[in-house]
Design a protein around this nucleic acid. Sequence first.
RNA 1: UCCCUAGUAGCUCAGCUGGUUAGAGCACAUGACUGUUAAUCAUGGGGUCCCUGGUUCGAGUCCAGGCUGGGGAGCCA
Length: 477
Amino acid sequence: MPKHPSILELFNDKPIGTNVLVKGWVRTFRNDQFITVTDGSTIKTLQIVIKKEEHDEEKLKKIQTGACISAKGLLEKSLGKGQDIELICEELVILGESDPNEFPIQMKRHTMEFLREKAHLRFRTNTFGSVFRIRHHLAFAVHKFFNDRGFFNLHSPIITGSDAEGAGEMFKVTTLDIQNPPRTENGEVDLSQDFFGKPTNLTVSGQLEAELAALALGKVYTFGPTFRAENSNTSRHLAEFWMIEPEVAFNDIFDNMDLAEEFLQFCIKYALENCREDLEFLQEREANEDKLKPVDDRQSMPLIQRLEFVTNNKFERITYSEAIDILLNSNHYKKKKFKFNVEWGIDLQSEHERYLVEKHFQKPVIITGYPAAIKAFYMRMNEDGKTVAAMDILVPGIGEIIGGSQREERLENLIAKCEQFNIPQDHLWWYLETRKFGTCEHAGFGLGFERLIMYVTGMQNIRDVIPFPRTPQNAEF
RNA sequence: UCCCUAGUAGCUCAGCUGGUUAGAGCACAUGACUGUUAAUCAUGGGGUCCCUGGUUCGAGUCCAGGCUGGGGAGCCA
């Protein structure tokens, strides 16, 4: 048992008439009498009532926004309207002062941009408190979903020696002195003297490793940090992000779609059931922010309604070819409103995906059967010899949230693909060997955890759903 | 990396076709009030107008370059 109850516990148990000790941070101090305190356990705040005469002036002055206090007293039914319980304070201690002239977080609206520069203190705000509580619950939901279905969590390596995954630019990992690295006779950096004796990178995906495990354990999933050294400056990309990658032996692309859809709906439902108050707060926040925006940029549905819509409706499933047809037959296309051309074989542009999801279907869409040329080497070739068993799940507002495929399990096909994509086979010998020894059909997908959090919280910028975002030119904190 | 856009008080912003001493709300300080809900009322302090250079009698305002933030695109999750 903790030495003192959290505010969440006080609201749940409501031990009215008993003596309690509370610790937390001051939000406001009104009327020289009412201290609003939060301790992070819930979005709710506890009102502490003090009698001015019982405390010396110096102490009262220190009850300021951001200060840390502890209060002991009787928990009572509140006389005021804003809350049902309050603490009648008998003993008040200032644990940590907070000079209001320096503390940057005020009880008023701050911009996300400003708070991003105060990432060490932004946890103290309602918005980030809610976001990071929801982040926790979603992480827990991920593990629960897979655990309940007999999946094993696989810890794929962070440092990887393979450089052929093709998922993007990689961060190099080295212990060599970059000012003065050892050189070979012809002047090149001698990586054989590096820590691992070869070039190594931070992982861009745990998928290939997950496949190895799936072909033995059956159903596995990874949930860990991944890294992309792309110079991407958007509200949807991070250099360090968390990815969830299930991989299942004996699943085909249709099983894969079912799993992905069930998984997304489970996570969203879990948040709706376990984070109600935080979601209500974020919904109100979003509505207030929307008032400042032009009508066209506003959300069509309130946050919670959007989430319920996703859990209550089947995702739309179409093939890439059907998607192209829909685009070609759209008024949007006929009025030449697309910036990029539409024809079979193109990689769908953001504007195309957005049209399909936000205008045409207005719900999550799963697109399958992409042209082989625009997808990764490991995706399974379909019978037509032109398309692969790939799938992307697109959601309104975010775009691609899941990308997956049935994997190419036929050794000769995979070797042919390696040649086409200029991937040296000796870099992937271990991957290819799984196709040599007891290969079987299998499938999996990757979900960007932060994008899921964005969708659930309604936050517009991915930098605001991870505690300390890493983006090009920015690794403060 | 490309395109667009912004940078004025601690925060959020206003500042017109260049023209006296650069404004408001919030925050802060002091006082009043005391069952408040981001309390209220009064008074007060607070500025490298992002930086560098230029045009001009005169630049927060115009021009050029740079820095930083934001939006969009590409890459992707």
